[in-house]
């Protein structure tokens, strides 16, 4: 029951995308996410999808691994789509039954919003699929460096983050073990009403919490024993360096961003009319 939660788990292959600098990937992911909110034409969505496809191919990821991340939020996507479809009342009515109406504007908005969500999740999951958690938190730390001037403990935050990330798989494994052990004693997690199910989780959650505290305690001891302290003078084992590929990646994503902006503010949907004619 806990198996499929591994959202965008790192997919270990060697590719151009995997080798990109984590900082660049973080910045570009943010750029991509912002760009998606500017898309509002079908042409724009096609462009985004094509761009994503290109990245997936370059990263040598199987389509399935990307779609899995979408599956994790499928419920939200479907829920939002249904609400949108029936709640928007502008435009010409295409279908109605009692007090429910579907208008053409609603159909278009729903399709666009669904596309936007799916592309957004796929794009964001590419980051975690191609970058190890350690690289991500190192990249974050590096990007947050300017905050040091306003006395933000950047290193500590990064350390907390990497420890948290590091222990996610451990906790999942541990949860699996405890679930198995309680199942072996006849516990069932998928029968009964809501309250019964919530109660059934107690035999899992209590040991999980107890063990987490124990583990945190042990880790703190181990770090202390090695004289860990978060001073400014710590050096990195892997020093991050920008390479040509990183610069190229930056320009490609910038070009994509500009194309999206042009489509929205310069062509204003003209390309849609050109491609789909009367449909839009």
């Amino acid at each position: 029951m806990f198996k499929d939660i591994a959202f965008g788990q790192y997919y270990p292959v060697d590719s151009v995308i995997h080798r990109l600098d984590a900082r660049i990937k973080l910045v570009l992911t943010v750029m991509f996410v912002v760009a998606i909110f500017f898309v509002n034409t079908y042409f724009g969505f096609m462009l985004t999808a094509a761009f994503l496809l290109l990245v997936i191919l370059l990263a040598r990821l199987p389509m399935l691994s990307v779609l899995k991340s979408v599956r994790a939020v499928l419920f939200i996507v479907v829920f939002a789509a249904v609400i949108n479809l029936f709640m928007i009342n502008e435009g010409t009515v295409l279908w109605s039954w009692k007090s429910l109406h579907i208008t053409d504007t609603a159909v278009h908005t729903t399709i666009k919003m669904t596309l936007r969500l799916v592309l957004l999740i796929s794009g964001a999951s590419l980051l975690s699929l191609t970058t190890t958690p350690v690289e991500i938190s190192d990249g974050m730390e590096s990007l947050m460096k300017p905050l040091k001037f306003i006395k933000v403990p950047v290193h500590d935050i990064a350390m907390i983050m990497s420890i948290a990330l590091r222990f996610i798989p451990t906790l999942f494994e541990e949860t699996g073990k405890i679930v198995s052990a309680q199942k072996a004693r006849g516990a069932s997690f998928d029968t009964g009403g809501l309250i019964a199910r919530a109660k059934a989780l107690l035999p899992v959650l209590i040991p999980l919490f107890v063990n987490s505290f124990r583990r945190a305690d042990e880790l703190a001891f181990a770090m202390d024993a090695r004289c860990y302290n978060a001073t400014d003078k710590r050096t990195k084992m892997k020093v991050m360096k920008l390479r040509v590929a990183d610069v190229i990646a930056f320009f490609v994503v910038t070009a994509f961003f500009v194309a999206i902006l042009l489509d929205r503010y310069y062509f204003v949907g003209a390309l849609d009319k050109l491609m789909f004619g009367g449909l839009v």
Binding site: K177, I178, S180, A181, Q182, A184, R185, G186, A187, S188, L202, P203, V204, I206, P207, V210, N211
Partner: peptide, 24 residues
């Protein structure tokens, strides 16, 4: 299981031991 003591969860030993029979 390995390290079965990490699966104890009830507030008393008797209640924890009773978990299996109760499920039966």
């Amino acid at each position: 299981f390995q390290y079965p003591e990490y699966q104890l969860f009830e507030d008393t030993v008797a209640k924890d031991v009773a978990f299996g029979p109760k499920n039966m």
